[in-house]
Write a protein that binds this DNA or RNA. Structure first.
Length: 425
DNA sequence: TCTGGGGTCCTAGGACCC
DNA sequence: TCTGGGGTCCTAGGACCC
């Protein structure tokens, strides 16, 4: 049976989430900002039409914001995460297999669907059901491979006549569309690669599809070879039946205002280490290595710059916040230099393993039972932190206000906090 | 004044071994 | 002038994704 994928992708996801609870903004241009209200990370249809670009620093577009009355929102990941779950739940009821690819998109397995109903009408059903259940608009691209489904979704978004659904299972249709799509729009072809490809005369998706895969593999990499095959309808990215465990966990932030003192940086990285370890325990994993980094603001070329990072392999894999915080701090201290404005820092946990593959430290001095006690302590802390507003934390972690993120345009937690439910008046 | 955060995969090149 | 060869493992960094 022919494999068929659908890619369902929410339209302007973060901006749509914000508009969902603000019907008064229905036709108003809306943009959502990154952490610290730094860059534009999402734009409503109206904001795109005004030429607001993805990723621009918000202070570069102050005049457009004033001129057009663009509404700003600080990113509200609690809200987006909750609405994302609702969308995915709806999709899981519609298709036998759903692969959640990111917060706002998922691949559906539509293999065999065609025997019951046309793919296009199934796509419309998906789109209508999601908007009915969640209020969020989506587009649906249908094709024999993931890369072509991405392309179909691109067309569904770009061409209004499609009404948000494109069935790209027909080869003639694939080729006609590919001839219209610039090569940089192909999934897996980024800025660097598209510049090089254009230099070779490959400017659209069709020219890439018709290029020789093994030649381009030698010149670039196996990734591009796979992309070419996928454009030709040969699937190279199969279904994963078991979700793959994470391989690394990152926690990093830019600071709302720069930090100078070692003690401030210590507080920050201790907090990142703690949060990263919480994620680790949530996935029931143990870290075998960790890395800490920090840096000044590289955009401030007028200021002295310094950045550094260090990593260490742990003798015993752990999920104990105290051990990880202690390691992170002992890496940080010798790298610290006085006299700089530090703008960002982070902690990365890697070499992640699950409990059954964990290897004990032959030379560990801990008495029997020590490990169990640590595990119990951590799970009690996690439980308290889940339930309570006042967090339990180690003495090293910063209090909530030490270097608070700028979030001047934050919307309420409409769906996850009883006190912030939307009200109808 | 002000420029995000969190991931994955692949490759090249060095270290080491016989 | 000529400077072994080939395998494995690991790491850092690049490129991509959303």
């Amino acid at each position: 049976m022919k494999t068929v994928f659908a890619l369902v992708d929410c339209n302007n996801f973060y901006a749509s989430c914000e508009k969902l609870f603000r019907p008064d903004l229905r036709d108003t241009p809306v943009i959502v900002l990154s952490n610290n209200d730094g860059c534009v990370v999402a734009r409503s249809r109206e904001a795109k039409a005004l030429g607001i670009k993805m990723g621009v620093p918000v202070h570069h577009i102050r005049s457009e914001i004033r001129l057009h009355g663009i509404q700003l929102f600080s990113s509200n990941y609690t809200l987006y995460g909750d609405l994302s779950r609702r969308v995915m739940t709806t999709l899981e009821a519609l298709a036998p297999r759903v692969d959640v690819y990111s917060i706002d998109e998922a691949f559906l397995d539509l293999t065999g669907v065609e025997r019951a109903v046309s793919l296009e009408s199934f796509g419309r059903q998906v789109k209508d059901t999601v908007v009915q259940d969640t209020g969020l608009p989506v587009c649906v691209g249908i094709a024999p491979t993931r890369t072509l489904a991405k392309l179909a979704n691109y067309a569904a978004k770009k061409y209004r006549a499609t009404e948000g659904v494109v069935d790209l299972t027909d080869i003639g249709r694939q080729r006609r569309l590919m001839a219209l799509v610039p090569v940089e729009e192909v999934w897996g072809v980024g800025r660097k690669l598209s510049t090089k490809l254009q230099g070779m005369g490959i400017t659209n998706a069709l020219e890439l599809a018709d290029a020789d895969p093994s030649t381009l593999r030698k010149q670039f990499s196996v990734v591009l070879e796979r992309t070419i095959r996928e454009l030709n309808g040969i699937g190279c990215i199969p279904w994963e039946d078991v979700p793959q465990p994470k391989k690394q966990i990152m926690c990093s932030r830019s600071f709302g205002s720069p930090l100078k003192a070692l003690s401030d940086l210590e507080e920050a990285v201790a907090q990142f280490a703690t949060r990263a370890t919480e994620k680790l325990r949530k996935g029931e994993q143990y870290a075998g290595a960790l890395m800490v980094f920090f840096r000044t603001n590289s955009f401030r070329t007028d200021l002295p710059q310094y950045s550094n990072s260090a990593s260490v392999k742990l003798i015993t894999s752990t999920q104990d916040s105290r051990a990880i915080v202690q390691q992170v701090l002992s890496l940080l201290r010798p790298m610290y230099r006085n006299g700089y404005d530090y703008a960002k820092a982070g902690v990365m946990l890697s070499d992640l393993v699950n409990a059954t593959t964990i290897q004990d430290d032959l030379f560990a001095s801990a008495s029997p039972g020590e490990g169990d006690r640590a595990v119990r302590l951590m799970s009690v802390i996690d439980e308290i932190n889940r339930k309570s507003r006042t967090k339990v934390r180690s003495a090293r972690q910063a209090g909530p206000s030490a270097y608070a993120m700028r979030r001047e345009h934050l919307s309420p937690a409409y769906t996850t906090n009883w006190t912030q439910l939307p009200s109808v008046t």
